[in-house]
Design a protein around this nucleic acid. Structure first.
Length: 894
DNA sequence: GCTGATGCGTC
DNA sequence: GTCGGAC
DNA sequence: GTCCGACGACGCATCAGC
């Protein structure tokens, strides 16, 4: 076998020949003309193309042996044959044959066909020395055409936005390949000086190389695609182009976070090196007795090959000895030292975040519960409730009225500042990741100096954020903390801030884990959760075996019982019949705010369905309620109410949002309200939750309620027809629809069961045309799922927007429409795309009212897409006048 | 003092 | 509030 | 069947910037 030594290049000591040495050597083979491979060797062997490019780059006089591909040449005691390597124009492999054996050195190579390099050839050899830049299985490049298509789309979108697309690729080889693709797509390229120079040489060497490009000139770059070497990124030349969108083309684009590593907006995986698949394939083609690997993941790939039965070793200074002594294989050492492991032990919050990731990474429900239970058990009394709350994506307990007032805008600014990222870089990262947590992780990777952070610290931070006034102050606080966290910790902090952990953890699973961790009965845990509305407290109680303490208490709100929707009277009746019930109760479905009123000892508190206290906003109601002599918990609805004037839900909302406490007397503009009670959960020390509705109703009707609190009337129905009649009567009374309840049912807090049904009908439908589309969020971030639509002004003929919707379409339909709207985009305004108005939708809604949100001056309540009307053209959509008539009919019908 | 952006909570 | 989809 | 995520309009509060 031919001996090989490695020191800043390969040496074949028996033959006095160097292969691609980094420093000048007396006699060397130069595989290709990239700057890191060429040096001023007095005597060298190269292909004609490489020699020509070398001359252009280095100048000067040297003794060059220029060999034709496939033609063997003899030197001293060896014979050498050059073979095309497919890396760039002129790149060559060398096959060396002598009395010691045969050796094939690939240099940089790839197997896929490029636009500029000669197609790769190979020969059998005893020893194969190969470059293994992408020697890990995760580096599998997508087909070139697909990458090029994405790159072209990136350019087109940038141009549509009025931005200058900038593509980064090596000036020799890749830049020319990019150039060809850009020309083919009909776009106008402009070349950075270095790229221009190389391309000119290319054209001399390859007469068929396309024309139609020009050298960069600052004033003329608008509307063109600029191609630059990677080194040009962040240079003054580029930063002067204000509205630029930069994409890098490199195999490393397969790494997550590539955009931020390269500080650009996009990264596309295109490489002049063989990817993992081709590396393996090449070894199979050459069938060597021994493989020596070089560059990139050399050690990992060698180990991989050994597992495939090859005698394979990484060539580097370190395992030189191992190689020469031919010792038995030990565990492969990684080529790149692993990222320095923090000497600091993991913080408490870090452990929480790690657990989150473990849960996210396991698909088995049982495993998630087991992981979670172990974790919960490991916590002390202080940590437990905090962690349990965080696990549900909340900073505070549900019953805690505090809010952070920290949304995506504040988080974004804080993350950018903490990581020292520019708006553009951050946008590029966050665009890739649907969820804020992941984007934060990528944005902060290797950009923070972590300090210890406990669960209590995290809670304290949330307290501070709540207390801080104004988004700027909050952002500042958050930024300082983020800068002192590990990226993983930061991502979980952000996940909690956005209220969304996204690790496949439902609150139900946390309940199961609590039960498992403390050997508690799952049902008891669930019940405790309904009573307390705070998993933190439930966990704490469970750990102390005191779950029974969570029960119905006066002035502690419990979750409300919910109803399932049914579309028709017949559907409602089928449900009832399925329960073998001879009849059911009906109530009007009021269009107000669900409320739970606790009364007792001269005190009254009002809570929303989210267990928020709103006593202050409805002080007039509370004041009246206080006069009730006994103890009771009422479930019902607060309604805007005024004799002789129709008040709407929107009137009611005016009071809801208000922060200031109601004054002793109603202000002149205040909306008067009444409370319609429809259930009684507790009476004079006794919980009625586990009594049938019929009994609860009887008790409710026996109460003498103070003025302002009324009992909602009920009726009995025993057929679909009676249900329909009751519905019509409810509508005639100005109510939204009908509630239908099983008289035998218990009150199940927080559940949406079949015991309570709700029956509403859409008001009407409108045929509209889609004029705009937007990207969705989360799971829908890769589709255009958000459609703005319009009706026609029959006078001017203009389209006037009237609403937005996505709800009602299947995933498949959304995908279809995404494709359609991508193709028919007229203009882009940020996220919003104006599209050709041709898709007609039928939109259903519950009501329609004047609004200045949309150009039509109308807006719908609960709009949903009922159908895509492919049978209709935009000329056939409804008119604004028709829509206005619907507003009118609704007004008079009540 | 007004306006627009943002956050939150109601349906 | 609405809806479709996953389990 | 039940839960969950991704969505609608609206109103108020708060703050930043004019």
């Amino acid at each position: 076998m031919i001996s090989v030594r490695y020191h800043r290049g390969l040496e074949l000591p028996e033959h006095g020949l160097w292969l691609d040495p980094e420093d000048p050597r007396p006699f060397a083979f130069v595989s290709h003309a990239h700057a890191d491979h060429i040096a001023r060797h007095p005597e060298f062997i190269a292909s004609a193309g490489t020699a020509r490019l070398m001359q252009a780059r280095l100048g000067g006089e040297r003794q060059g042996h220029i060999l034709e591909f496939g033609q063997p040449a003899s030197f001293r005691d060896f014979q050498i044959t050059l073979l095309p390597a497919g890396h760039i124009f002129g790149s060559a492999q060398s096959l060396i044959e002598s009395e010691h054996g045969s050796l094939l050195y690939t240099g940089d190579f790839k197997l896929r066909r490029g636009l500029s390099a000669e197609p790769t050839e190979w020969r059998h050899a005893e020893t194969l020395i190969m470059e293994t830049t992408y020697g890990l299985p995760k580096y599998r490049l997508p087909p070139t055409e697909a990458v090029m298509a994405r790159m072209v789309a990136f350019c087109q979108e940038s141009l549509e936005d009025g931005a200058v697309p900038v593509l980064l690729g090596y000036s020799l080889g890749k830049a020319q390949e990019i150039l060809c693709a850009i020309l083919k797509a009909g776009l106008t390229p402009m070349l950075h000086g270095a790229v221009y120079q190389m391309t000119e040489i290319y054209r001399q060497l390859k007469p068929d190389f396309p024309d139609g490009y020009e050298r960069y000139s600052a004033g003329k770059v608008e509307g063109k695609v600029l191609i630059c070497p990677p080194s040009a990124n962040r240079t003054i030349m580029l930063t002067r182009i204000k509205n630029r969108r930069v994409a890098v083309l490199t195999g490393w684009a397969l790494d997550p976070g590539a955009t931020y590593r390269y500080q650009c907006d996009a990264a596309f995986p295109l490489s002049d090196h063989a990817d993992y698949t081709d590396l393996v394939r090449y070894v199979d083609l050459v069938q060597p007795k021994r493989v020596l690997t070089l560059h990139g993941f050399a050690a990992a790939f060698a180990a991989d090959l050994r597992e495939r039965g090859f005698d394979a070793w990484a060539l580097s200074e370190e395992n030189q000895l191992e190689l020469l002594l031919r010792r038995a294989p030990s565990t492969p050492q990684p080529e790149r030292p692993a990222a320095p492991v923090a000497a600091m032990p993991q913080s408490e919050f870090g452990a929480f975040a790690t657990l989150g990731d473990q849960i996210a990474n396991s698909t088995s429900k049982l495993k998630k519960i087991a992981l979670l239970a172990d974790y919960l058990r490991s916590l002390n009394e202080t940590q437990l409730p905090i962690a349990a709350r965080f696990l549900t994506g909340r900073a505070f307990a549900q019953s805690d009225m505090r809010t952070l007032q920290v949304g995506w805008a504040v988080i974004k600014r804080a993350v950018m500042a903490a990581g020292g990222l520019a708006e553009q870089e951050f946008r590029a990262i966050s665009r890739q990741y649907a969820d804020a947590g992941k984007a934060t992780y990528e944005a902060l990777l290797e950009r923070t100096t972590p300090r210890d952070f406990s669960l209590v610290d995290a809670l304290a931070l949330f307290d501070q954020l709540h207390a801080a006034r104004g988004p700027l102050v909050k952002g500042e606080l958050l930024q300082q903390r983020l800068a002192a966290l590990t990226p993983l910790e930061a991502s979980y902090l952000v996940k909690i801030l956005t209220g969304d952990l996204r690790i496949g953890l439902k609150s139900g699973l946390v309940e199961e884990a609590i039960a498992a961790a403390f050997q508690a009965d799952l049902h008891t845990v669930r019940e405790a959760q309904m009573f307390t509305g705070d998993l933190g407290e439930v966990a704490a109680l469970a750990s102390k075996n005191q779950l029974e303490e969570a029960s119905l208490h006066l002035f502690r709100p419990i979750q409300v019982m919910l109803a399932s929707p049914e579309p028709t009277a017949q559907a409602v009746w089928s449900r009832i019949a399925a329960h073998d019930a001879p009849a059911a109760w009906t109530e009007d479905k009021f269009d107000g705010i669900r409320a739970q009123i606790h009364l007792g000892s001269g005190r009254a508190e009002i809570f929303t369905r989210d267990l928020r206290q709103i006593t202050g906003q409805f002080a007039d109601l509370a004041r009246a309620a206080r006069s009730y002599p006994g103890e009771a918990i009422l479930d019902g609805e607060i309604l805007a109410y005024e004799q002789g004037r129709r008040l709407t839900f929107f009137d009611l909302q005016k009071r809801l949002g208000r922060k200031t406490e109601d004054d002793l007397f109603l202000g002149a503009n205040d909306i008067p309200v009444v409370f319609k009670a429809f259930d009684l959960l507790y009476l004079n020390g006794t919980s009625l939750l586990k009594r049938p509705l019929a009994e609860r109703r009887l008790a409710l009707e026996s109460l003498t309620l103070p003025p302002g609190l009324e009992v909602a009337p009920i009726h009995r129905v025993a057929s679909a027809e009676e249900i329909e009649a009751a519905f019509q009567a409810a509508r005639a009374r100005g109510n939204e629809g009908l509630m239908i309840k099983d008289g035998a049912s218990f009150y199940t807090p927080g559940r949406r069961g079949q015991a309570w049904l709700k029956f509403k009908k859409e008001l009407a439908t409108l045929d509209v045309v889609v004029v705009g589309a937007e990207q969705g969020h989360g799971k829908r971030s890769h589709v255009l799922s958000d459609y703005t639509f319009a009706v026609r002004d029959e006078v001017s003929g203009h389209l006037l927007t009237i609403g937005k919707a996505y709800s009602g379409l299947t995933d498949e339909e959304i995908e279809e429409l995404t494709e359609h709207f991508t193709a028919t985009t007229i203009a882009r305004h940020g996220r919003y795309r104006e599209v050709v108005p041709e898709i007609v939708l039928e939109i259903a809604f519950d009501s329609i009212q004047p609004s200045d949100r949309h150009a039509s001056g109308l807006a719908m309540r609960f709009p949903r897409i009922k159908a895509i009307r492919r049978d209709k053209t935009p000329e056939q959509i409804d008119t604004i006048a028709h829509a206005r008539r619907l507003v009118a009919t609704e007004m008079v019908s009540h």
